[in-house]
């Protein structure tokens, strides 16, 4: 899985144009996150995608050509912090299940956001692989609903996009 970050013009249609090029090359985007920067005319977009590196490099060169794309970079996994947030609602009518759920949530430094007799909703963040493991653990409790934010990433130290 590769992580690619973009700076793009914050305008209608940019997300369409970027994802359209991935589609054209037959790549399935695994996750995508976008948000404006301190300069609201610019957004940062982070895409994770499974692709063979040669085709991906060529695709990035093609993306870099797009008028609305200011910068593109494939992030080096060893020098990058990747984070994702998960909202998950677990079925916790059984007190044992509730206890297990709270243990897993605390173990991942999660926050309980909402709670009633039958459910616990939690916010958990971490590396996407940690979230995968967390979800593996709570699966037996019963996942009523979940939503993952997609991966966002920054390079370490002096490196910037």
């Amino acid at each position: 899985m590769h992580t690619v970050s973009f700076l793009v013009e914050n305008q209608p249609g940019v997300l369409f144009n970027v994802s359209n090029l991935f589609r054209r090359r037959g790549f399935n985007i695994d996750s995508i996150t976008v948000g404006a920067l301190e300069d609201p005319r610019v957004s940062r977009m982070t895409i994770t995608v499974d692709a063979d590196p040669k085709t991906l490099n060529n695709l990035l060169d093609q993306l870099d050509k797009m008028v609305e794309v200011i910068r593109v970079k494939r992030l080096d996994p060893l020098r990058t912090v990747r984070r994702e947030m998960l909202l998950v609602k677990l079925g916790t009518r059984d007190p044992m299940a509730r206890e297990d759920a709270l243990r897993y949530i605390n173990g991942q430094h999660g926050l309980v956001l909402d709670i009633d007799e039958e459910h616990i909703m939690a916010e958990v963040s971490g590396e996407p692989e940690e979230l995968d493991r967390f979800l593996g653990n709570v699966k037996s409790i019963g996942i009523v609903e979940m939503s993952r934010s997609g991966v966002t990433a920054l390079e370490k130290g002096r490196l910037t996009l």
Binding site: K54, N58, D61, Q62, D64, K65
Partner: peptide, 8 residues
């Protein structure tokens, strides 16, 4: 002139 053509 188009870098994306190189090695494509």
């Amino acid at each position: 002139i188009d870098r994306s053509e190189i090695d494509k």
